[in-house]
Computed example of a mutant assay.
Amino acid sequence: MRRLFPLSPESSPSAYEDREWSLDELADAYAYPAGGSGGWLRANMVSSLDGAAHHGGRSQPLSSAADMRIFGVLRALADAIVVGAETVRQEGYRPARAREAFAARRAAAGQAPAPVIAVISASLDLDFTAPLFTAPLVRTLLLTGDGAVPERIAAARAAGAEVVIAGAGNRVDPARAVAELAERGLTRLLTEGGPKLLGQFASAGVLDEVCLSLAPLVASGDASRITNGPVLVEPERFALASVLEESGFLFTRYRRA
């Protein structure tokens, strides 16, 4: 892996050499901004050269070993991983695990041993017998609307999940979801999609950062882009923060301008 941007005379020459980066180096490179009591929402997504966010319904075919290392580091830095119900179902989400390599860093930041998985679901149509609900290291959160079926809410709570009302009727308000998580001290937020959820966050104006892995692959087909939501009245500008490269994959990081 090597750094392509930013180029700084103060940086060590080794930052630009093609070598394996340590987990600590990656964690420093992707550190959340310091300070602030509101939530900072970071997205981590992968895309093919022709814009596909998945292949065959899953993101894994577009990934690489380096992409998975960064994926793991971003999870290890987060207070909460925010994900849509459809992605939970398609990707077979499991609880986040505690990693010894990040234990001291998380303890120093006042974080739990592992990030919370926060699932956004209006219908609560989820398998509550899955390990995500029955065996998490940190209690799973479910964000839903106040019109959710009471029986599904009861089933979720019986399975051990914490249900958070973050919207009216049968929808979840993206801005309110971020605020509800921040009120619980979960301010370092990471969303892994899917595209529909990410589109909702973008349309609500609460997406602060995008970490996009660009795979040197062409997928064709009709896969969605990394966002699939309401059209913004004006496209929102993001500023390039960093670019890393390994084996033709570009690992970009953009922050809202």
Rank of each mutant, 00 (worst) to 15 (best):
S203H: 12
Y254F: 12
A257Y: 00
P230K: 02
E180H: 06
A166E: 08
S14I: 05
A156G: 05
F71M: 06
D146T: 03
S47C: 10
V233R: 07
S14C: 01
A76F: 00
R99C: 10
T144G: 02
I153V: 03
S203M: 10
Y93A: 09
P174Y: 14
R42F: 08
L244W: 15
D208L: 04
G248Y: 13
L137A: 13
P174C: 14
R89A: 10
D208R: 11
N44T: 07
G92R: 12
I120D: 00
R106T: 07
F102Q: 08
I120P: 00
V82R: 02
R42K: 07
S11C: 11
P9H: 07
D127G: 12
A53Q: 09
R99D: 15
N228P: 03
T129C: 02
L62E: 07
F238T: 06
A177C: 15
G199F: 02
R171A: 10
V178T: 14
S8M: 04
Y93I: 11
V149D: 13
G229T: 13
V116D: 06
R58T: 04
I117Y: 11
G145L: 03
L190V: 11
Y254E: 11
A66N: 00
A78H: 02
G185I: 05
R2C: 09
Q60E: 01
T129D: 12
R157W: 01
D146F: 09
T227H: 04
A159L: 12
E209N: 08
A107Q: 00
S123C: 00
E17A: 09
V178D: 08
R171D: 14
G39D: 14
D222M: 14
A154I: 06
Q90H: 09
L190K: 01
S8N: 12
R42T: 11
P150A: 06
A148V: 04
L41D: 03
E162S: 07
L41M: 12
T87F: 06
P61H: 08
Q111S: 04
E91G: 07
G160R: 05
P33E: 01
P33Q: 00
A158L: 04
V178W: 05
A148R: 09
R69N: 08
D222L: 13
R188T: 03
A241F: 10
R106P: 04
F5E: 15
L142I: 10
R106V: 05
L49Q: 09
V233C: 04
A98G: 10
Q90E: 06
S242E: 02
L132I: 01
A223N: 11
S247K: 15
A257W: 00
A168T: 13
P115H: 11
Y93R: 12
H54Q: 12
T252P: 00
A223I: 02
S59I: 03
A52S: 15
A156F: 01
E17F: 05
S37F: 05
G185Q: 07
I81D: 04
S47E: 12
L126F: 06
I153Y: 00
Y254G: 06
L41N: 08
A43E: 08
A166M: 08
G194D: 15
T87E: 10
A182I: 09
V88H: 01
S14Q: 05
L232F: 01
V119M: 03
R171F: 14
L77A: 01
A179Q: 11
L240K: 03
V243M: 10
V233P: 06
V82Y: 03
F71K: 03
T191Q: 05
T144K: 06
P195A: 14
R89C: 10
L41C: 14
